[in-house]
Structures are given as structure tokens and as C-alpha cells.
Design a binder for these strands. Structure first.
Lengths: 338, 338
DNA sequence: TTATTTTACTAAATCGTTTTAGGAACGAAA
DNA sequence: TTTCGTTCCTAAAACGATTTAGTAAAATAA
């Protein structure tokens, strides 16, 4: 394994100082009054031997890593991996790389990841906070570390945030079911106090109560979705046979729901109308196609990077007013909600 | 933003040397003959002020980052994001973090990502190589940088590799269609020379030719799948109306195929039998359910990290015989191939 | 001629660790 | 009293860059 050549080696080889080499490599030759002749010579030699900078050393000295930490619920989830894809593209374009971590929506895991990446001196964070993270978020803010919350926010801490109007989106979705003559609309959601889930629940409640309909709510633990969702939803349907439509708070819950409706031989939308929160490739192909509240993932990703880089570039964060960017949702109306 | 405290600060505060602090923090106190009393005192103080190591500095000095670069085709693809999820979990457990890059299966982009992460001194790479990367892979090998290829390998370079027997899996899938009395089996694949695609093609050809059946092959450019696949597959079906079964070389091609069959009002499996390479959540729910060749993603991920860490831990890589780990595939037989 | 400015460069400190090589203090052995 | 081992700790170099605060020499001005 040939040792990598360093600026020092270049300097020695060309009989000049490392300072000069560094200036030239960083394009500060002109500004620092290095002659064109020497600049040429250095650049040529550097190219010849194929030197590349040791980013670790550079980062240590400058305090900049050009790495952004993306902490999402789970990389193996279409919504989040889609965000990861867009965020990566957007970040790359602006000279940043992404280091990710799946929080599994667990507070301890998220906290641990934040600390790990802080020690690695990432330039900033994009975080989908788990529950009870107010203290940690507050700490990040106090330390002046750039970060943007995503998907859900912390009620008690003012921070940059990109997300959707979950309340309004949810209400509209339920309104749409009502407009299609569904009367007994069940809501299947997570057992979670996170803002996005809370708002979706409130939206559902607002819609049904404003039409004087009865509310049917089923909450499922996030950590147990895969094990128990099918059973729980089945029980929910059996206990409330009058339900003629279902609204699912996430796409993976909706998938579980489809499985249940299949098992129960209930047809969509004749027996049960259906809308899911978050779109999914399946929904376009399923028979019937499934109506879904769609988050503009590309737009959100762009905003996330925008806000974050704005923080990273201005170090006088404290002066800035935290920004909440609420992007509009779209309901992709398909056959399941007829 | 309070300046972070360093080992130097601790040493100064306690009136001892940084060496001592470092030894203690790295658990070398005993070995280096630091007294228990002092060890206690340092540990207590460190805890009190909540010191954490600057990993950048540590990495610079030790040459270890504990970061693995995962270069996959596209994070926004269920197969790869699933791999990313497992690889992350496996790596985390063993003290490593993942920095990822989506290559989009483009040679230049992949090359660029490799170089970028090399400059960042990642400890190793997991790579799904794009086409024509032999030279780059050879270079990595020469430089003694630990890496494992995944999903597809480089014919001309001996390297560690984790993948499947694509030839055999493909042949079995086609054999299964034949056993179900399909006679004219079309194969829809990518226009690619990569090993995994090449082997799937060979598997298909072997199966049809051994049964003296005619081959119908459609190749689509990876970069244009989203734009043209539906049109191309439609044309393919129209030009070859005798086709009574389709085998798709990837799950996203199969999704395009489903769209086409829908449009053409062809029913599965009565008009056209169908098998996809790579499973997908949709396939379990689609009506009818779709038969798929399934890669054991969890197992592959574990093997990837295993092989890679073995390289990272032994620096006498040159002595090791490159290992090819071929994991068995499973055909999830569902209704579409009846 | 001398003073000043400009041009073209560089020595050395620094970022925060790890690690090599060694040193002081003390007691025991010769 | 010298010598030798222990025990416990440290000075300083190193990793590879950036950057501050210069300086020497040449050009220009006075």
C-alpha cells in the first residue's frame, strides 16, 4: 500500500513551502500573490502525481466536514428512502455528502446517533425526531449546531422545520370520504404523540365531528406494527362492523389494512372506502387503485437542504428567526375512495 | 457556542499530561501503569464535564474512521434501501457508521463517489459497480483499500463478492413457467453487460433452449426505464402476440410490465404468466399475487459486513484468497405463474 | 541615495488526538 | 554506596492540512 503523498511531499519535491502549495490548491494564489509561473508548476505537478487532499486533516483544521447527517425513522421505508434519495441529490449538488442513521423512532437510538455524529463534526443535521426529544433538540440549538427538523416538530422548541399541514391534509382526506357518502369512517393510526400523528388525528376528529359522525379510532404501537397490525385491524373491523371507510395514518398501516380487507373478503370501495396517508408505488397498481395523501417529497427535500445550508453558511444563527416551511399536500384521488 | 473541551484542557485542569488522559480514556491505564487513583480521578472529571472525543482528530491520527461507504445503485429503490437498512444495522452493531452514495448505475458518478470517500478515508467500501469499472476496482485493490462487491462482480478482477447465483435462479424461474405449460416466454431485461444481468439472461436462454422453445428478449436502457419502459414493453407484446408468459429481470421492470398488461387488458396468469426477479411489497398484495425470485437480503447484508470487516481487521489483505459468497435464492411462488 | 511599497514567498502555530521513547522517584539488592 | 527494577507518569513528534504573521528582494518614489 503506497503511502499517500501529502502537501509536505509536494512542497519538498518542488523546493517550496507547504503554505504556498496550500494557497495554490485552494485557489488563493492570486490573492496571496503567488506568481503565475509557480502556480502553473505546482498545479502541473499535483496533477501528474494525482494528489488529492486528505479531507480528515482539512476538516480538523477548518472545522468543516461537508457532511450532513440525515436521521430518519427507517431507511428501509419508501417514504424515507425517497427523501434520502432527493436529499442526497440536492446535497451532492451543493458539495455535501450524507451520512445517515435509522432511528427506528426510538428516543435513545436517536440521541445516540446525534451524539455520534456530533463527535464526527458533521456540519448539520436533518432529523425526524422521536418522541420526548425536546431536551436534546434544545441542547443542539444551544450549542449552535445547524439542524432542521423534518416530518414532525417539537412543540416546545422553536426550530427550523419542514413538513406538511397534517391537520388540514387529514381533514380534507376525511372530508373527501364523507363527500363520497361514507358515514362510518375508521381511523387507523400509530400510538404516538409526535406532532405529525397528533395533527393527523386532530384532522380526522375535526372532519367527523363537523359532520356529526361517530369517530372510530384504532391506535397501534409503532414498534409492533409488523407483528400485530393485521390482528389488531381485523379485531377493529370485527368490533365495528358498521365501518364503511378507513383512513390510514401511514402507508404501511394501509398495506396492513389491505391485507385485512383481503382476508375479510371486503371489497374496496363498495364495502369499505379507503384513503392512505403517504403515497406508495403499490397504490397506483393495486386493484382498485388506492387514494392517497401525497407529500411533495422532492420539494420538501429541497427545502430541507436550503434551510440547513442557510444555517451552515451564516454562523450568526441566533439572529435568525426559526422558519417553519409547510409544503402543500395533494390528494391523489383514485378508485378506492369512490 | 461554547468551545468544546479537549484532552489538553482536561490535562491542564487536572495538572497531568495529555498522554495520561489519552491512555486512561482508551482503557490503556492498566497496561501503561497509570495508578488506579489517578484513573478514577480522570474518569470522574471527564464524566462531570461530559467530554467526548473529537473523532476527526482521532481518525487523522489513527487512520481509522469507523465509517463504511455504501455505494448502491439507488437508495430510492426497495431492494437497495432494504440492503441499506440491514447493512446499517449490522455495521452499527460492530461499531461502524454508513455513508452512502447512489451511483445511478453511472460509471463516472461511481468513480467520483469512490474518490470522494477515499479522500474522507472511509475504512472500506461496499460497492455495486457500474459498467466498465474494472480499472477502478483494480486500483482499489492495488491500493489495498478494503472493499466488497455486491450484486454484480467484475469478471476480470479477483475480489471479495457477495451475490446470488443469478444464472441458476433465472433458469429455475423460467423452468417453473415452462412446467406450468407456458410455451412462449418473453424476457424483459436491462440493456446491460453487468454480471448479474448477463447471468440472468443466460439463465433464461439456457432454460428456453433446453426445452427447444423460442426466445423473446426485450432489452431496455436503465437510464430510460421510467420514460420508455411502458411503451417498449407494449410494443414488445404487440410484436409478439404469441407470448404467454413474461419473466422480468428486475422488480421495477415487472412493475412497468404490470402496467402494460393492465393497459392491454391481459389477465394474469390466464393470458400471460408472470415472474419477477427480486421481490417487492406489491407482489404480495397484487391481484393476483406475483411470483418472484427473492434475494435473501438480510443474509447478504450480514455477509457483506463480515467480509469487509475481515479485510479491515487483517491488514495483510494480499495474503487472503478473495471470497465469493453466493447465497441461495428462493422463488416465492404465487398466483401469477400458475 | 534612502525610504517606501509591492511582489513573492515562508516559518511556525494550530486543529485534537495517539504513541514512542524515556525519565524521575523510590525501594531493594549487591 | 552504587546499581538495578519498578512504578507512574510525561515531552514531544506525528497525522496532514490551513492560516497568521511575517520577511527578503525588487521596484518605485522621494
Amino acid at each position: 500500500m503506497a503511502k499517500k503523498v501529502s502537501i509536505k511531499d509536494i512542497a519538498a519535491q518542488l523546493n517550496i513551502s507547504t503554505t504556498t502549495v496550500s494557497f495554490i490548491l485552494n485557489g488563493k494564489g492570486k490573492e496571496k500573490g503567488i506568481s503565475d509561473v509557480l502556480t502553473e508548476r505546482v498545479l502541473k505537478y499535483v496533477k501528474e502525481i494525482g494528489y488529492t487532499t486528505n479531507q480528515l486533516a482539512k476538516s480538523l483544521r477548518t472545522g468543516k466536514t461537508n457532511i450532513i447527517s440525515l436521521l430518519i425513522e427507517n431507511i428501509d421505508d419508501p417514504f424515507f428512502s425517497s427523501v434520502a434519495g432527493y436529499v442526497e441529490a440536492e446535497a451532492n449538488q451543493r458539495g455535501y455528502k450524507i451520512i445517515y442513521g435509522s432511528t427506528k423512532n426510538e428516543t435513545d437510538k436517536t440521541r445516540e446517533l446525534i451524539n455520534l455524529f456530533k463527535d464526527r463534526h458533521v456540519d448539520g443535521f436533518i432529523i425526524t425526531p422521536a418522541e420526548d426529544m425536546e431536551v436534546d433538540i434544545m441542547k443542539l440549538k444551544d450549542e449552535g449546531i445547524p439542524f432542521v427538523l423534518f416530518d414532525r416538530y417539537c412543540e416546545s422548541v422553536q426550530t427550523d422545520y419542514v413538513g406538511m399541514d397534517n391537520f388540514e391534509s387529514s381533514r380534507k382526506a376525511v372530508d373527501h370520504l364523507i363527500s363520497q357518502n361514507h358515514k362510518n369512517i375508521g381511523f387507523v393510526t400509530l400510538n404516538s404523540d409526535q406532532s405529525q400523528m397528533f395533527d393527523r388525528l386532530r384532522g380526522y376528529e375535526a372532519a367527523v365531528s363537523s359532520h356529526k359522525l361517530e369517530a372510530f379510532i384504532k391506535k397501534i404501537d409503532y414498534s409492533k406494527v409488523h407483528q400485530i397490525a393485521v390482528k389488531e385491524i381485523t379485531a377493529f373491523m370485527n368490533e365495528n362492523p358498521q365501518i364503511d371507510a378507513l383512513f390510514f395514518a401511514t402507508s404501511y398501516l394501509a398495506l396492513k389494512g389491505l391485507e385485512v380487507l383481503n382476508n375479510l373478503n371486503l371489497s374496496i370501495p363498495d364495502d369499505v372506502g379507503l384513503i392512505a396517508f403517504d403515497d406508495h408505488e403499490i397504490f397506483k397498481l393495486y386493484k382498485p387503485t388506492i387514494t392517497a395523501v401525497t407529500q411533495p417529497v422532492a420539494e420538501m427535500s429541497k427545502q430541507l437542504i436550503n434551510l440547513l445550508l442557510k444555517q451552515i453558511d451564516n454562523d450568526d444563527i441566533s439572529l435568525q428567526q426559526p422558519k417553519h416551511i409547510i409544503v402543500p399536500s395533494v390528494i391523489n384521488i383514485r378508485k378506492s375512495s369512490a
